Amino acid sequence: MKAVRLHRYETRPVVEEVPEPVITHPLDVIVRIGGAGLCRTDLHIVEGQWAPTSNVALPYTLGHENAGWIHAVGSAVDHLTPGDAVILHPLMTCGYCRACRAGDDVHCEASAFPGIDTDGGMAELLKTAARSAVKLPAGIEPASVAALADAGLTAYHAVKKAVPQLFPGSTCVVMGAGGLGHLGIQCLRALSPTRIIVLDRNPDALALTPGWGADETVLVDGSHVDRVLELTDGKGAEVVLDFVGEQGAERDSWSMTRRAGSDFVIGYGGTVSIPAIDVISTERNVIGNLVGSYNDLVELMALTAAGRVEMLTQTYPLDAVNDAMDDLDAGRLRGRGILVPEGAAG
């Protein structure tokens, strides 16, 4: 089968033939990929940023946002059958540790992360665990939702954590209206009554956000922090969701957070550097965010089926992975890029 393989860091991946995966455990499933999302994390992986964390042996297959159809199942899998359309929770989890038992499976003590520390789904087939598969509602095509497995799940998870602070009359600032941000705006509108102020350096991106639920937009032009403070009577927002996390956004996000507010760090690449006195004197919080749980993904699919969350996508053939990476890196990609294997079908 064809797969997108990374052979060395700081060198773009290549599409090559590799053996098809086989069932080796009773709870394995093999999924025929209908779409694999392209994430900025994939660029960071190629750059080597994840090497110390993942410790993955090269070469391996990229792709951690995956959806498709069940192709084969292990002998102990009785809730999934070949042909079922599924989206895959990005982690393979054990189900037995304390985190899994508590429904916080993103912190499973014995997890594997396809596309990060083991072979991922930028391929024709992917082997994962039956626990990872969420059946898609009727009428939803895998390629249309694949990136919700990470981009949407991460955004939903952060918003869900922030909701207790987003009461009527509150303000939430969204930093970045791109692949994650446009989903975060929709999740905010679906889950809370808060006023939403969206910031981005691209006016074309900002122009789309009222349709997703933004109440105010602010162009990132050097005066944007002052503009947000003006819109919040000099106090700042109860919550800032930073979907950028680099190039100064991590500094600006903190500056726009009010006393006792929370700065949710979602994007990454930069450094959060805050004097301790600023934290204790204002009782502000910095909150980290990874992907959400399996149950979060189930809830996100319910919002998607109800038309409350819709993802902007641009599809590319699997062979065009580097064209897609070029578009993402250059800022030409609106929403999420989706790699579709040739002939992908259930």
Score class of each variant (00 low, 15 high):
A249K: 04
I30E: 12
W254D: 01
A151N: 13
A155W: 05
V159C: 07
K2E: 07
I280Q: 06
V220Y: 00
V239A: 03
G176R: 03
R259N: 13
L58D: 11
D117T: 09
R251S: 13
V321C: 06
L312P: 13
E47K: 12
L58H: 10
V106M: 15
T93D: 00
V244R: 11
V163C: 06
M92N: 13
V134H: 08
V86K: 09
L231D: 02
W212A: 13
L199W: 03
L229V: 06
E310M: 14
D263I: 06
V106R: 14
E47T: 01
E283Q: 09
A344P: 06
L27R: 14
C187W: 09
D105K: 07
A102H: 07
L312K: 13
A344F: 03
H71P: 08
P193S: 01
A99P: 07
G152Q: 03
V244T: 11
A151P: 05
V106I: 15
R12P: 11
L297Y: 04
I116E: 00
E342N: 07
I45T: 12
D104A: 10
A51C: 03
C187Q: 08
A57G: 06
G74P: 12
H157L: 01
G269Y: 12
D200I: 00
H182P: 12
G139I: 01
M301Y: 01
G176T: 04
V225N: 07
A207Q: 02
V220P: 11
